[in-house]
Design a protein around this nucleic acid. Structure first.
Lengths: 146, 146
DNA sequence: ATAATTAGGTTGCCTATGCAATTAAACAAG
DNA sequence: CTTGTTTAATTGCATAGGCAACCTAATTAT
């Protein structure tokens, strides 16, 4: 058994979600503490819309690494909550352009605040260089299997 | 805006599941290619049982970082598939001890093979030292927010 | 002993996800 | 044109997840 096998179990458990689900749950808790009634997944959609509105569902799927049906349902729920609206694209009638409602825009400040807090909690005591190093390694992993 | 904010977006997207969902999907595909009709989540349960049978559901919950209801349902499905069985603990009648069936044990070789393949695909071209470094950093993150 | 608390599991409710199949619009080729 | 292909989105089906409430068995305290 070589070195890569020796470390595999531990490393595997990290990559298969241990850390990311912990972060996701923490984000969820922080959002709730900030009186935001949205899920962590809904946050990822809103996050991109807070940066740029009028994205198509396909673009949101690419940005959040989900499949199209997942986006359809997330947008369904966000629309029910009147945080976003679908606007049919006049240029390409197959596409929906997703816009925030006033209500959706109002959540931006608190949403960004709670996600930044989550990030700070997650990376407390870590050096910038460590974070960069981890990012580079994870990036390589992602490109291997994406 | 300080350094930690500058890198936050990228790093955040990695931590919130980009890499782990990619691995999970790859594992799922590899299991299927190996003719194993189990989900990646079921694999994580079987993985621990292949190492030690007779674990309680609570122990499996701790090992896989899931809550108890999630384990209840995973075991329900695995039991329906006749891969595991619940055995009521005579010492502590609150607990179920989970054992593999013959059929469940038979999946071990192929299951481990496909997960090892997935790990190798994910970490191709990476140095052992890089993996160790990433593991240490992710471990710190996990301990910050677990 | 008995009451109060803790611990293991289950159920209900709601959200999220992946895959496969489908519809409808856009585009390309003949 | 019109046929064939690609692309955006939706729907169906099945699994999985968290949280809260609950039940029962075990443990602790009085």
């Amino acid at each position: 058994m070589n070195d890569s096998l020796i470390i595999s179990n531990e490393f595997y458990s990290f990559l298969t979600g241990k850390v990311s689900t912990a972060i996701s749950r923490r984000l969820q808790r922080n959002l709730k503490a900030g009186k935001l009634n949205i899920t962590a997944e809904q946050w990822t959609i809103l996050y991109h819309l807070w940066q740029e509105e009028g994205l198509t569902q396909q673009e949101l799927a690419n940005l959040t690494f989900r499949d199209k049906p997942s986006i359809t349902r997330l947008i369904n729920n966000l629309e029910k909550m009147t945080l976003v609206i679908r606007v049919n694209d006049k240029q390409d009638r197959r596409s929906n352009l997703i816009y925030l409602t006033k209500e959706g825009r109002k959540l931006r400040e608190e949403g960004m605040k709670q996600s930044l807090l989550t990030l700070q909690e997650a990376t407390a005591g870590l050096e910038i260089e460590e974070l960069r190093a981890a990012q580079i390694i994870l990036d390589k992993v992602f490109h291997n299997i994406k």
